[in-house]
């Protein structure tokens, strides 16, 4: 067989020999297994992936009957950020009627709970009216984004300025204060949108600002689950590993720093999350086959250990997808198919 055309994690085209392909798949799954202390993919699964990447087809898809539900982050922002001139209503209807979206998500352009709180008076009526003219389940989504709570834009001293001064205790106290502010904003926005009629809330890119970010989302989930037993809460993660920006934060006695997806999942379940979205980072220097094998290994471990729904993050730079703004369909559809058929997840 000739060379296999694929891509690096940065999106650039490369060619691999069959033995290089097999070696990349093996090393991807082994690395995930070692880091996460989870089982690697089986030889059958690696053979399946090898066949998938050897196919010359421009696009691929799951077998008929194996389709899954798609949930989305950023909803209308996907159109707004391309400077598509559509209102939030129009964007949601485009997603619903033209993109074949299984679920919808309303969101503000800044996509963080802190600014969303300021705009509730404008976004709540939009949510109420959008619910009248659309059919699929509607989420409201934004990020915990702890970084927005630091001075000069926020109320807390920036821990990143305190740490170089050796003020460890002060930096940690500041992180803890940021968590409290974030929980208040997330609960307020989520409550308002749920009471406006939304079907669910998405805490997206959770953990982007480290362990405090993850803790804020867990605590907000706990409050909302108690307040609204039927609310659907989706928690999409920012990366495969929770950074210890504070380092000593815990939830239910478990230290958050350093947790991998299958460990994050257990805490999400405990807090009351309905849909967990594990994110596994793409290595831009690795081949896409290696990144897909690595991601599938982590996400398969989540599905195997989960009592809740798993919707894997398969977007720019995660889930075996290249780190690119404009993604090639050969990579997207291979990552999409592999993720569904190897891991058995409930959605993407």
């Amino acid at each position: 067989m000739g060379k296999i055309r694929t891509r690096l994690g940065d999106g650039s085209v490369i060619e691999l020999s069959e033995s290089e392909l097999r070696s990349d798949l093996e090393s991807g799954t082994q690395e995930a297994a070692e880091r996460g202390k989870i089982p690697p993919l089986s030889q059958d699964e690696l053979r399946y992936l090898a066949e998938l990447f050897k196919r010359p087809d421009r696009t691929v898809g799951v077998d008929v009957g194996k389709e899954v539900v798609l949930s989305y982050d950023c909803g209308p922002l996907k159109i707004k950020r391309s400077y598509g001139t559509a209102s939030k209503f129009q964007s949601l209807q485009i997603l619903e009627r033209l993109f074949g979206a299984d679920t919808l998500e309303m969101a503000h352009v800044d996509y963080s709970y802190k600014p969303a709180r300021q705009l509730l008076w404008m976004d709540q009526p939009i949510m109420e009216q959008a619910l009248l003219v659309t059919i699929p389940a509607m989420f409201y989504g934004a990020m915990p984004n702890l970084g927005l709570y630091t001075q000069p834009d926020g109320p807390c001293t920036n821990p990143m300025e305190l740490l170089p001064q050796g003020k460890i205790a002060e930096a940690r106290a500041s992180f803890e204060e940021m968590v409290e502010h974030a929980v208040n904003d997330m609960v307020l926005v989520a409550s308002t949108m749920y009471e406006a009629g939304a079907d669910g809330i998405n805490f997206d890119t959770t953990g982007a600002a480290g362990d405090g970010d993850f803790l804020a989302a867990l605590r907000a989930t706990e409050v909302l689950r108690q307040k609204y037993p039927d609310i659907c809460i989706e928690m999409g993660m920012a990366g495969e590993f929770v950074f210890g920006m504070h380092g000593a934060l815990t939830y239910d006695g478990v230290r958050l720093a350093g947790l991998y997806p299958h460990e994050q999942l257990k805490l999400a379940e405990k807090a009351g999350v309905s849909i967990f979205g594990p994110a596994v980072n793409t290595n831009t220097d690795s081949s896409c086959p290696r990144d897909v094998a690595r991601s599938s290994t982590f996400i398969k471990a989540c599905v195997k250990n989960s009592n809740i729904l798993i919707h894997g993050n398969v977007g720019m730079g995660v889930g075996g997808m290249p780190m690119q703004d404009v993604l090639p369909v050969d990579s997207v559809t291979r990552a999409s198919k592999a993720m569904v058929e190897i891991t058995g997840l409930d959605g993407l």
Partner: peptide, 17 residues
């Protein structure tokens, strides 16, 4: 979104997604 929908999505209101 469209590529995912084609590759593995159920199809939303086009189908029973």
């Amino acid at each position: 979104s469209v590529a995912h929908s084609l590759a593995s999505g159920m199809g939303g209101i086009r189908t029973a997604g």
